[in-house]
């Protein structure tokens, strides 16, 4: 790791967050649409408190996954070829680029989950027992999805496959994160703390980080 690694990673994360602050795509498009999606389910299944409280956690993470994939795809496909060339010629470490992009997307996804969590509690009348574990579940979900989106975006850029490939890559690979997040909260409310699902999520996050680090250079080379 070069001594420019962290400054470069933070510069890239800062750039992506600045771009989001100016464009407001997550704040003004993704979050409202996610909230509307959560609102539509009670309208569709009827206002039955027992049903809503049973499906609430699952719905929260389904919405987080679907809109999280959109956010990750958006964040990783907003560079033009000229911008990619310019950043390559600045001597950026591809691993620092992976880390920086993943950090920015993870922060956006974390904010998205916090808002969606509040909306779900309000709309579905959830029992908050065990929700303190969200402090672990939400960041793991955000980091995992962000790594997945960044990795898939790099694969799409290097193969010239375009953004259409990214959801196809991200969605199936996000299933362990979806299972891990919902089952962690469900198991806590049902049987008490069961760390096996959290361990699964942590392993997924770690494996994605390793794959991202190992493939960063080859993927940049084939762009």
């Amino acid at each position: 790791m070069s001594n420019r690694f962290w400054p470069q990673a933070f510069a890239i994360a800062r750039r992506d967050l600045d771009r989001e602050r100016r464009s407001g795509e997550v704040a003004w498009v993704t979050i409202p649409f996610g909230a509307v999606a959560l609102l539509l389910v009670p309208l569709a299944v009827g206002i039955n408190q027992d049903v809503l409280s049973r499906i609430g956690t699952g719905m929260l993470f389904v919405v987080v996954m679907l809109f999280g994939v959109l956010t990750a795809v958006r964040q990783t496909n907003i560079e033009t070829p000229a911008q990619r060339d310019a950043i390559a010629l600045l001597g950026v470490d591809p691993v620092a680029e992976f880390a920086g992009r993943s950090m920015a997307t993870a922060l956006l996804l974390l904010a998205f989950q916090v808002v969606m969590g509040a909306v779900t509690v309000a709309l579905y009348g959830l029992d908050l027992a065990g929700w303190e574990w969200m402090v672990v579940v939400m960041p793991l979900t955000a980091i995992g999805l962000a790594e997945l989106g960044t990795l898939s975006g790099s694969i799409a850029a290097s193969t010239n496959a375009g953004p259409a490939l990214v959801p196809l890559l991200v969605t199936p690979l996000a299933i362990p994160l979806l299972l891990g997040s919902t089952q962690t909260v469900e198991s806590i409310t049902r049987d008490g703390v069961n760390l096996s699902w959290l361990v699964l999520m942590a392993i997924v996050v770690l494996v994605l980080a390793i794959v991202g680090v190992v493939t960063a250079r080859p993927l940049q080379e084939t762009r």
Binding site: R15, D18, R19, T80, P81, A82, Q83, D85, A86
Partner: peptide, 11 residues
């Protein structure tokens, strides 16, 4: 310096 600008329009 290419003929397409490489700047980020939101910045």
């Amino acid at each position: 310096i290419g003929h397409s600008p490489a700047l980020y329009p939101e910045l």
